[in-house]
Design a protein around this nucleic acid. Structure first.
Lengths: 150, 150
DNA sequence: TATTGTTATACTCTATAACTATA
DNA sequence: TATAGTTATAGAGTATAACAATA
């Protein structure tokens, strides 16, 4: 019955990178339909928040604006996103995911979910329930706070 | 009481990258004493398994041998690791962490644990217990299987 | 021939600093 | 003057292909 904070922190530090590496390898392992994890996160966010500004996406994903600008360049070059000026404030851009971007996002999401679900299939229901509880708790404490929102 | 595999997978896919980004930013945020996450993982593994071969480290961390070779080059250039030939099999190398490498590893580990423990401090004991249970379960299913071991 | 590792090459990720355009 | 974004520059992460050395 470990409830020691330091010990929990140590476990997180050991296990989270291992899961992450599994997700990363899975996402990159589909020639032509592959995405890096940051690319996936950007597409998923913009798909849920159509017309997001660069700043909003950078803030959500936890990158600097220059890094995000280049990441978006790459996605646009692959035809997965589009960028246009915000007519109300021409300093801003409005980002959107193209149809092709949505298709790839969907494919990669499904593949990754299958990969993860397969891994989880080895666990009992009560362990999976612990995972759900743990993830919801962790989501609340690690979520990057919204800036001003607009 | 969610025990649906697909749903657990989705939560994992949403939350794990967020935690990872927090860890990454924390590790990079200490000028001169900073480490990337892969560098941290390599140092921690080799520190626990002195004399590891390149192949063993690459396998554990989940990188290809060429990628690992370059990553190790960087750590050696910074004086954090050493590489020498294995006298029993001259195709192999024996990797070790230097004193300076151990010092930085220790500093970064403590800083990151503090960061994580601080985040976890916002949670009740039962949530932390769920996290411990979840991480142990996840560790078993995501651990990269050992190769031949030697 | 099989194994271990490195080099060559090419992208992507990521940051800081400096700049442009708009407000 | 402040904000949103891009460009310039640089280093790290990562892969595949080709190679060298050893077993």
């Amino acid at each position: 019955m470990t409830v020691d904070r330091e010990e929990s922190a140590r476990t997180l530090l050991e296990v989270v990178p291992i899961i992450m590496q599994g997700i990363r390898l899975e996402m990159r392992n589909r020639r032509l339909l592959d995405l890096t994890v940051p690319q996936f996160r950007v597409l998923a966010f913009v798909n849920r928040n159509k017309g997001s500004s660069l700043w909003e996406v950078a803030n959500h994903v936890g990158l600097t604006p220059p890094s995000m600008s280049r990441l978006v360049d790459g996605l646009i070059a692959r035809g997965l996103m589009a960028r246009k000026d915000d007519p109300d404030d021409r300093r801003r851009v409005q980002l959107t995911v193209t149809g092709r971007g949505q298709a790839i996002l969907e494919t990669v999401t499904q593949g990754t979910l299958s990969y993860l679900a397969d891994k989880l299939g080895d666990l009992d229901a009560d362990k999976r329930e612990a995972i759900d509880n743990a993830m919801e708790a962790l989501r609340t404490v690690f979520a990057i706070p919204h800036g001003d929102g607009r």
